[in-house]
């Protein structure tokens, strides 16, 4: 479901070397608005390095990044965030002891003026938090509920809702489902679907083929720092994806001995 003719972000032949280690050896990827582009790869394939390059943490050794058609150079993550590229990390930027609404607006607190002083506008913060969470299908007991009482999936959803609310155009999700149970995973995948329908470009990093196939529009597989190709939904089977990720046929023999798809 390509909604646009021009990709919102395009990475061309990105290379990244750390000293003598070549972490990325020419990776290309483009993402369109309203698309969920899954980036698959086994551990060590270079997924993390690649998305860190996309979100401004690393500077590529070679290759170009085009954002909304123009070449972009991010000096640090703030530049990327300001441009509208938000990353929801595996380890969330959430503080368990603080309420959902305080977390939601952390660093971007709404204020109102009373006389010469500026105060935290709790009313607005609480209202917006409840609204945004309801849109994502999470009913909070109240905006003052501590994030610590939420499940892992709900925390992911709060983080996603926060990124969306603060104007993300590209949302990078770094293994959002890796530590979750089945039902919570389903909830997060449903959230991804909702976000995509709002016209946001989603880059979904995972090493779980089934999670990717559940929401992905296109799939790019990384292996040992290289792109093994991009496939559209419906053009590829789970088995093919799995094989590409594992980087060869040796997994087939292993799977047969285990009696099923890993």
């Amino acid at each position: 479901m390509v909604a646009d003719t021009q990709p919102i972000i395009e990475m061309r032949n990105i290379e990244k070397h750390f000293g003598s280690v070549i972490a990325l050896a020419g990776v290309s990827l483009d993402v369109y608005r309203g698309e969920c582009h899954c980036l698959l790869g086994d551990n060590g394939a270079g997924k993390s390095t690649f998305i860190k390059t996309m979100s401004g943490v690393h500077k590529p050794t070679a290759g170009e990044i085009y954002f909304e058609g123009r070449p972009m150079h991010f000096d640090d993550p703030r530049d990327a965030i300001a441009a509208g590229i938000a990353t929801v990390h595996q380890h969330l930027a959430m503080i368990p002891l603080m309420s959902v609404s305080r977390n939601f607006f952390m660093g971007n607190e709404p204020t109102k003026k009373v006389g010469p002083f500026r105060f935290f506008d709790h009313e607005t913060a609480n209202r917006i938090t409840m609204e945004e969470m309801r849109k994502m299908g999470i009913n909070l007991r109240g905006p003052d509920q501590a994030v610590g009482t939420l499940s892992g999936g709900e925390r992911q959803t709060v983080a996603i809702a926060r990124a969306v609310y603060f104007g993300a155009k590209v949302l990078i999700l770094d293994e959002p489902t890796s530590a979750l149970g089945v039902r919570q995973t389903a909830n997060v995948l449903a959230t991804i679907d909702k976000v995509r329908k709002q016209g946001i470009a989603v880059v979904f990093i995972t090493h779980n083929v089934r999670h990717a196939l559940a929401v992905g529009d296109r799939f790019t597989v990384l292996n040992r720092g290289r792109t093994l190709g991009t496939a559209k939904r419906g053009e590829i089977t789970p088995e093919e994806l799995q094989d590409m990720m594992a980087g060869g046929q040796e997994l087939v023999a292993l799977e047969e001995s285990l009696g099923g798809t890993v």
């Binding site: 999470i138 009913n139 909830n187 995948l189 559940a214």
Partner: peptide, 9 residues
Amino acid sequence: MSETAQPAA
């Protein structure tokens, strides 16, 4: 379009 589960409302 995709087989995502409905959120637990």
